[in-house]
Amino acid sequence: MIGETDTELAETGVRGTVSRAELRQVVAATYHQIWWPTTDRTVHAPDAPPHWSPEHAAFLDPTTGELLPTWDEALDLLDDDPEAQPAHILRFGPQLDAQGILVGSPQAARCVRYLTKYLTKSVAECHTPTTAAESDHVDRLAAELRHEPCSPTCTNWLLHGVQPKNAHAGLRPGVCRSRAHKREYLGYGGRRVLVSRKWSGKMLADHCAERRTWVLDVLGDIAGRAEPNRYVWEPVRPGDPDTAPLATRLLRAVAERVRWRAALDQALERAGGKPCPTTI
């Protein structure tokens, strides 16, 4: 089955100086193909799936006793089939509203708050069924997703006569642990934010180090330089009497970030020749 999905370019933050015209061209020309074995029909029933053979370290057909093709072998068959087509094709939707934002502007702060709000919301909060018809629809969708393959390692490939990637004993169709099969996600099991190294080539530690260096340069003598051997860090164990309650620790962390933000704003105002408050 070929699935072709047009999705809107939703709330997305992109760093760089790409022009809007070029961005529109990139979006229009971007698509992604997923080459998977066919899922048009199931070969085995959920109550009679292939069984694991310790002797062969692989899954066997419950009827013929033959070895199921591995994931790599199933993909090789696609390469040899001139009429094979991708299982899914994904493209961006037609709606694109690209806006340039300057660092430090009120619009930048507003957009950061907006993105943070929706990136941290639970997928289940997007829509709550309010009628019996909507609840029935969610039930049917969740039931279909239970036995639908979600990734190369999904146990549901056994129902289609293919061993999942990295197959091992104990796999059972219909009990894949991926979030894509959970009712609260309704098929969505990916990341909302790409990890840093995917789009910048840097790890989070690299960005933190660059940010720290920049902040210390801006603050100058106010920040001082941390002494590496001044503190000894130890993990906090449950029941430690020296540990403050969670609410207290959260309030302290928020207050600390507020002080840091105020000190940084003062330093930036001084660097720009603007008056700044006398207190932090």
Rank of each mutant, 00 (worst) to 15 (best):
P152K: 06
P86Q: 01
E144C: 12
D136E: 15
K165Y: 06
L158V: 07
V193T: 11
R15C: 09
L90H: 09
C208R: 15
A29R: 12
L9Q: 04
E8A: 15
W199D: 07
P241H: 03
A109P: 00
L204D: 15
E55W: 05
L141V: 15
L251N: 11
Q107R: 14
K274P: 00
V18T: 14
E134R: 06
W71R: 06
K182T: 10
G239A: 05
L23C: 02
K182A: 14
R179A: 15
G174V: 04
A21R: 11
E148S: 13
K274I: 05
Q95Y: 09
T130M: 09
A45S: 15
K121Y: 11
C150E: 00
R110I: 12
A132R: 06
L186D: 00
P37H: 01
E11D: 12
G220P: 02
A28Y: 02
P62T: 03
A21I: 07
T155Y: 09
H44L: 08
G190M: 01
R113P: 00
Y231G: 05
T42H: 05
A247K: 09
G104D: 05
R257L: 14
T30D: 04
A132N: 05
G93P: 00
T155D: 06
L186E: 02
Q85L: 12
A21E: 10
Q163F: 01
V236F: 03
G93S: 06
A267V: 06
L268T: 07
E184F: 03
D72E: 15
T248A: 15
P241K: 07
D81L: 03
D242K: 13
L78F: 02
T30S: 14
A263P: 00
